[in-house]
Computed example of a mutant assay.
Amino acid sequence: MLKKVCVALGISLMIGLTGTAHAQEDQSLQRIKDRGTIKIGLMLDFPPYASSGAGNKPDGYDAEVAQMLADYLGVKVEPVITTGPNRIPYLLTDKADVLVASLAITPERQEQVQFSNPYSAASMVLLGPADIVVDSPADFTKYKIGVPRASTTDIGVMKIAPEGTDIRRFDDDASALQAMIVGQVDLAGTSTVIASEVQKRHPGKFEVRYVINEQVMGVTMQKDRPELEAAVNAFLKEKLADGSLDKAFEKWLGTPLPASVHAASN
């Protein structure tokens, strides 16, 4: 009899704990709606994805997606300015509810955070002077390579770089690229979009010397928040279907939204 009572109590306790867990999960989205604002982490040093616009307000593709998400949820945007290295720490310490900060979806990051379906994509490349030749990763050891610390570019270069490659890490894309421009490093790892901006500012001086990979990016949130994840994915599905994301990407980046975003979201 005692054993049956204990088992029954155990089952009741498990049900209670499960119910509590689901209640906590549900609260993540409800808290945003009750507060009337969503705290969205943005990187303002990553144009044309995000930069500081008129009146120091966030501008760019990520900023526009952030505003669309807030409108979809019926709340206002509370921008949280982040850097590459502190994006995930800000998210995990509740300084931000979500990140719309060009964060590429990788297995390593998926162990820490939850990603939505993709909303963007970019190729990671090595940019450098036109006279530098990089036919394969074996050539990396000939040069000093600058990358944004802890970025997907950093990870991508490390995965394919031979032992002895001189990888130099900087706080952000702008710092790594500036180091390349002044000759502190020979090559800089960055996205094709940012590489294009550098090439426009320095015509004929720099070219893409090697393509590292293409990666899709997702809106990022803490794990175990299924209600919030479902809402973000529903938002992305709607905006992909009605062409809003395509229009915004074309506006800010001057190219069509990569097919990989549509393919990964189907």
Rank of each mutant, 00 (worst) to 15 (best):
K3C: 13
L13S: 08
M14R: 05
I15P: 08
D26A: 15
S28H: 15
K39Y: 09
I40D: 01
M43R: 07
M43D: 12
F46D: 09
Y49N: 12
S52F: 02
S52I: 05
G55S: 09
K57A: 15
D59G: 09
Y61D: 03
A63R: 03
A66D: 13
A70T: 07
Y72I: 07
I81S: 07
T83E: 12
R87A: 09
P89Q: 04
T93V: 03
D94G: 08
A104I: 00
I105Y: 08
P107R: 07
F115W: 07
S116R: 09
N117Q: 14
N117D: 11
S123L: 05
V125M: 05
G128C: 06
D131M: 02
I132C: 04
I145L: 03
P148F: 01
R149L: 14
S151E: 01
T152H: 14
V157N: 05
I160N: 04
I160D: 00
E163R: 10
S175M: 11
A179K: 03
S196K: 11
Q199E: 10
K205S: 06
E207N: 12
R209Y: 01
Y210I: 05
E214L: 02
T220Q: 04
K223E: 04
R225L: 12
E229R: 14
L253W: 02
G254Q: 01
V261Q: 02
A263W: 08
